[in-house]
Simulated scan of single mutants.
Amino acid sequence: MPGPYDDLVDHLVRSSPLSANEATRVVDEVVAYFAEPVPDYVRRRHTELRHRGWHNDRIFTAIAAELPTRRVSPPALSARQLRRIVYG
């Protein structure tokens, strides 16, 4: 069954030494990383940075700078909305 990122997997296989299985795992990992809910991300990053010996002031400054770079999922679009995007 085709996946939603098959074109990206194919691109990675063509442009890197990754096999199809490795490329699929990489894409799945990246998609999961960027789909992480904000509260989970903040908790995870806080723990990671604490383990590096950082203090809260520095941690929260870093997390605040990172949050705007996170992927934001768009709202679900109907077929009509998609058509309007394509055809105006």
Rank of each mutant, 00 (worst) to 15 (best):
N21G: 08
R58K: 11
L12H: 04
H46T: 15
G88H: 10
D6K: 11
F34K: 11
I59F: 02
R45W: 05
D57C: 00
D40W: 01
L8W: 04
L77Y: 08
D40M: 04
G3E: 10
P39K: 08
A32N: 12
L77M: 12
T47N: 09
F60L: 13
A23N: 07
E36V: 13
F60G: 09
A62T: 15
Y33C: 08
P2Q: 11
A79F: 03
E66G: 05
I59W: 01
T69K: 13
A65G: 14
I63C: 06
A32M: 05
V31F: 01
V27C: 05
H46D: 08
T69S: 15
L18Y: 15
A32H: 07
R25I: 02
R70C: 06
A32G: 08
Y33H: 13
R83I: 07
R80Y: 07
A65H: 15
S19V: 00
P74N: 09
T69D: 15
Y41P: 05
Y33E: 15
L8T: 13
R50F: 00
N21Q: 14
V13L: 08
H46Y: 12
E36K: 09
V27Y: 09
R45Q: 15
D57L: 09
S19M: 04
E36R: 12
G53C: 07
R43V: 05
L8C: 02
G3R: 14
A62V: 13
S16T: 15
R52I: 00
V38F: 08
E22C: 01
Y33P: 00
V72T: 13
V27P: 11
V31T: 07
Y41A: 07
S15L: 03
D10G: 10
D7M: 03
N56R: 12
V31R: 09
M1R: 14
E66N: 02
R58N: 10
E48G: 00
L18E: 03
S16V: 04
R84Y: 02
V72M: 08
V9K: 05
S78V: 02
E36A: 02
F60H: 14
V13P: 11
E22V: 02
V9D: 01
I59R: 04
L67W: 06
H46M: 06
S19A: 10
D10P: 01
R43A: 15
V13F: 07
N56I: 01
A65Q: 15
A23C: 04
D6R: 12
A76D: 12
P39S: 06
D57F: 02
P37V: 01
P39C: 06
V27A: 06
V38N: 07
Y5M: 11
E66F: 01
E36M: 15
F60Y: 15
R25L: 09
T69Q: 15
E22P: 03
S16N: 09
